[in-house]
Design a protein around this nucleic acid. Structure first.
Lengths: 147, 147
DNA sequence: TCAGCTTTGACAGGTACCTGTCAAAGCTGA
DNA sequence: TCAGCTTTGACAGGTACCTGTCAAAGCTGA
C-alpha cells in the first residue's frame, strides 16, 4: 500500500481547494455575464475577438481550447447577433469572426461588472498573498505541464 | 469606465492560474484513473461509496454535485459492474449503492497511483508554500461563497 | 390519522468541454 | 510544377456537469 507523505497530504488539501475555488469562480463568472446575455464561455470568446478579427482556429489557440469547442460557441454567438462572419482574403476556408455592435456592447457591459467585482474582492485579500499564490500556482502548473 | 486597481489586476492573474491548474489537475486525474477503467468523476463516486453503502442523493451531497449528475455516473458504474444496487430497508425509493469486488479493486488501484503521484509532485514544492496557498485559497473560497 | 411539505429517482433537455473523421484549402520542398 | 503534409471548418458522437418536472415514498405537526 502506497501511503501519502505529509507533503502529499498537504498537496491533496491544495487540490481540493483549487477545485472548490475553480467552481466558485466559474459560477461567479456566469453570474457576471448573465445580465448581458452571455455565459463565461461566450464572454471569453468575445474578449478574444475584441483584440481583432480572428478565425475559429485562432480563437481556440488563444484560449487553449479545442477548435470544435470554440466553433460551437461562435456559432451560437453568430446566431444571437453578437458575432458575424466576414470573408477572409488570406484563407478561403477560414472566415473571420468580427464583433457586431451588439456583441461589443454586451462585452463592455460584462467587462465593467467584472472589473468592479475583481476590485472589490481583491481589496479584501492582502496583495502579498495574492502574488504569492499566483506564483506558487504557476510553479505547480509548470510542474504539471512538464510531467 | 471602471478600471482595474493594482489589487484587481493581481487578482485577475490569480484567476487565470486557478483555471489553468484546475484544467491540468483534471487531466492528470483522468490519466491516473484511466488504467483502472475509470475517469475522475467515476473514481470520486467509488471513493464516496467506499465509505459505506449510500444512496445516489447521499453521494451527491457528499460531493457537492447535483443529484442527477451522480445518478448518471452511478448508472454507468453499475452497467460496468463496479457498483451494484442493494435494497434499502430504510427507504423504499432509494436503493443503496455498494462496491462490487471489481469496483473495489479498480478504486484501490487508482488510490495507489494517486498517492505516488501526489507524493512525487508535492516533494518538488516547498511545504510552507503548499500550506500558504491552501490557506489563501480557502479564504478566497469563503469570500466567494459569502457574496 | 392524514394533509401538506420534502426528498427521491427517473426522465427530458441544455451547456461546455472533448476526440475522431472527412474533404477542401493552403503550404512546402524537390 | 505538383505530390504530400498541414490546417481548417463541418459533422458525429462522447463525458461531465446543470436545471426543470413528475410521481411516489417518507416525514411532520395539528
Amino acid at each position: 500500500m502506497t501511503a501519502l507523505t505529509e507533503q502529499g497530504r498537504e498537496f491533496s488539501t491544495l487540490l481540493v481547494e483549487v477545485f472548490r475555488v475553480n467552481g466558485l469562480l466559474l459560477a461567479a463568472g456566469d453570474e457576471l455575464a448573465r445580465p448581458a446575455g452571455l455565459t463565461s464561455a461566450r464572454w471569453q470568446v468575445l474578449g478574444v475577438v475584441d483584440h481583432g478579427p480572428s478565425t475559429v482556429a485562432q480563437v481556440a489557440r488563444a484560449m487553449g481550447l479545442a477548435r470544435q469547442t470554440v466553433r460551437q460557441t461562435a456559432t451560437s454567438l453568430v446566431r444571437d447577433g453578437m458575432l458575424a462572419y466576414q470573408d477572409n482574403p488570406g484563407d478561403l476556408r477560414a472566415r473571420l469572426l468580427v464583433l457586431t455592435p451588439r456583441g461589443r456592447s454586451a462585452l463592455r457591459q460584462v467587462e465593467r461588472r467584472q472589473a468592479a467585482w475583481a476590485n472589490a474582492l481583491a481589496a479584501r485579500l492582502p496583495l502579498a498573498e495574492l502574488c504569492a499564490v499566483s506564483g506558487t500556482l504557476r510553479d505547480l502548473g509548470d510542474l504539471l505541464e512538464g510531467s
